[in-house]
Design a protein around this nucleic acid. Sequence first.
DNA 1: TGAATATATGAGCAGATATTCATATATTAG
DNA 2: CTAATATATGAATATCTGCTCATATATTCA
Lengths: 96, 96
Amino acid sequence: MKLTELKAVKLAELFSALSDASRVRIIAQLMGGEMSVRAIAQGIGMSESAVSHQLRGLRQMQIVRARKSGRQVFYSIADEHVSHLFTMGWDHIQHG
Amino acid sequence: MKLTELKAVKLAELFSALSDASRVRIIAQLMGGEMSVRAIAQGIGMSESAVSHQLRGLRQMQIVRARKSGRQVFYSIADEHVSHLFTMGWDHIQHG
DNA sequence: TGAATATATGAGCAGATATTCATATATTAG
DNA sequence: CTAATATATGAATATCTGCTCATATATTCA
């Protein structure tokens, strides 16, 4: 396992995506399918602005992807690596 | 997937363990087997104090475990869930 | 015992991060 | 067109984080 500096940073960034309780709640909701910003915000009791800010970061990290429809934007998990990672963490919590 | 507030925090804490490049380097080294604090520090070019601080957090999160032998303390990955999680992230980086 | 070595820890600081608030942009309805 | 709605974004702020430096503790060696 040879770890260059760049890869260490990339790995840290990946895990950072799930390293905050708000983002965890956002991702957990998206595990059930795509949702609008408003729906996410209401579902977890966060302001739409805060959710939008977090989604921006998640989008840039390619953790989620956005689909625009009319004036709404629907977000969903970008790829199954992410949901798999999330599920593994989830399982670990359940047993630990 | 029902996510209580407590579980969201626990999940975030778990991923936080790997959300920093220094910790990623520490974990990556420990993937090869147990190492002393000094060896870890030298291996990744960090001060022993900084490494010790990080190890403290990782210990509290049960990500690593410590074995004392004489005046040295050897650290290793606490359980295979962690190394599995790490490996998954690693794979994701390789292909992404 | 005293010196040297290995690790741990507390304080303090600099930089990062998450939120709020105000505002901007884009889309739809009337 | 104007008003309303959904989202995005910038600035400001409060909190959190990771490091350094100094110091403490524990263990071994002479």
